Simulated scan of single mutants.
Amino acid sequence: MLDACAELVDEVGYDGLTTTLLAERAGVAIGSVYQFFPDKRAIVQALTLRSLEGYLQRLSDRLAGEGIANWWDAVDAAIDEYIDMHRTVPGFRTLHFGDVVDIHLLDDERDNNDVIVSQLSALLVARFGILDASRLQFVLAIAVEAADALIKLAFRRSPDGEAAVLGEAKALIREYLHHRL
């Protein structure tokens, strides 16, 4: 059902998504949809959580590999993985991490980007031993908001993301973090 949801959200958008369409696409009875999900928001929430888990796994795998010697390489990797998912993962381009639906889709207490920042911070602290985790979270919050806006701009300008804008986004975030951490 989540795969069908991802396809549909790319085709018709969140507003066009219905549980009836989802059931038809997934080849299940409407009752089966409601057995697992009370409404379309819950379905999209599950899809968004799956995307977050996939993103964090991809980034974690990349950080464990060779070639990531410094935290700024990890930041580049985080941006690259986000861009790649934007291009290749069904539903991700439309939903990102749920901000299209609700800024509290991932967590009732915190906005979606705060959840992302916490996860990224934990990865960076674990991998690079950054000591001031609260400072890291603050500057990452600024960086994530800026990167999110610039990446969206790049994909509004070109279906594959305008390379010049994506390059500037990475340079801006790297330079900002370099002077703040």
Rank of each mutant, 00 (worst) to 15 (best):
I130L: 14
R135I: 01
G31E: 05
Y82M: 13
D111N: 13
D84E: 11
R135F: 14
R157F: 01
P38C: 00
D39Q: 08
I130W: 15
F36K: 12
H104V: 04
S60W: 02
F92G: 04
R25I: 04
R62L: 08
H179T: 13
V115R: 07
G13R: 01
L131G: 15
G98I: 03
I30S: 13
V75T: 11
D61A: 05
I142A: 07
D61C: 03
R110G: 12
V144Y: 04
R180S: 09
L21W: 09
S51N: 12
L63P: 08
S60Q: 14
L95H: 10
D39T: 05
A154D: 05
I116R: 14
I68M: 08
I116Q: 11
A143Q: 01
K40S: 03
V101M: 09
N113Q: 15
L59Y: 12
D3Q: 10
R135Q: 14
H86G: 13
T19K: 05
R157N: 07
L17C: 11
L49V: 14
D39S: 05
E24I: 13
R156C: 06
R135K: 09
Y34R: 11
I116N: 11
G167L: 03
D84G: 09
Q57F: 00
N112W: 01
L21N: 06
G129Y: 06
A163D: 01
T19Y: 02
D76T: 13
L124Y: 14
Y82I: 10
D80K: 01
L140T: 00
D160Y: 04
Q57N: 11
L105G: 08
G98Y: 02
F92E: 00
V101T: 12
W72Q: 15
I151Y: 04
Q45K: 15
R62D: 01
Q45I: 09
L22V: 06
V9L: 07
E145G: 09
D99E: 09
A29Y: 03
I43P: 11
H178F: 15
N112H: 04
E145L: 11
A143T: 08
G98H: 01
D102C: 03
D99N: 12
G13K: 03
Q57D: 12
L131T: 15
